[in-house]
């Protein structure tokens, strides 16, 4: 018999609830990316708008105050580049 199930029925939580809130953060959605944002630190004014508008909620501030995407999640949509008021973010091909 082929094994297609995630787990035995006895191990499911009551009513198939998920008891580990936020465990979707295990999912590497960065694999979807074909374009990759690149930050020009010279142009960046650290305004945080890229983080505000990131639909992946994956841009956070680093120790120097720059806003950086987490490439484990970044799908490369390009919203950050489009919204950057200083054109400090450019989208390049993944792997280049």
């Amino acid at each position: 018999m082929s094994k297609q199930a995630i787990m035995a029925w006895e191990d499911l939580a009551l009513g198939t609830a998920i008891l580990s809130p936020g465990n979707a953060k295990e999912l590497r959605t960065g694999d979807w990316r074909s374009l990759k944002p690149k930050l020009d630190e010279e142009k960046c004014i650290k305004c945080s708008l890229c983080a505000m508008y990131c639909p992946e909620f994956c841009i956070s501030v680093d120790a120097e105050g720059f806003y950086r995407p987490d490439f484990y999640y970044c799908k490369g949509c390009g919203v950050c580049a489009n919204e950057c008021p200083k054109d400090a973010i450019t989208m390049g091909k993944e792997g280049e």
Binding site: I6, W9, L12, A13, T16, I18, P21
Partner: peptide, 23 residues
């Protein structure tokens, strides 16, 4: 103590979910 009620039952779990109900 947040839980997620009513997630998507992908094919890899739907049969087991129904088994739980049946039992």
């Amino acid at each position: 103590n947040p839980v997620t009620f009513g997630p998507v039952g992908v094919p890899e779990v739907y049969t087991e979910a129904r088994k739980q109900l049946e039992q």
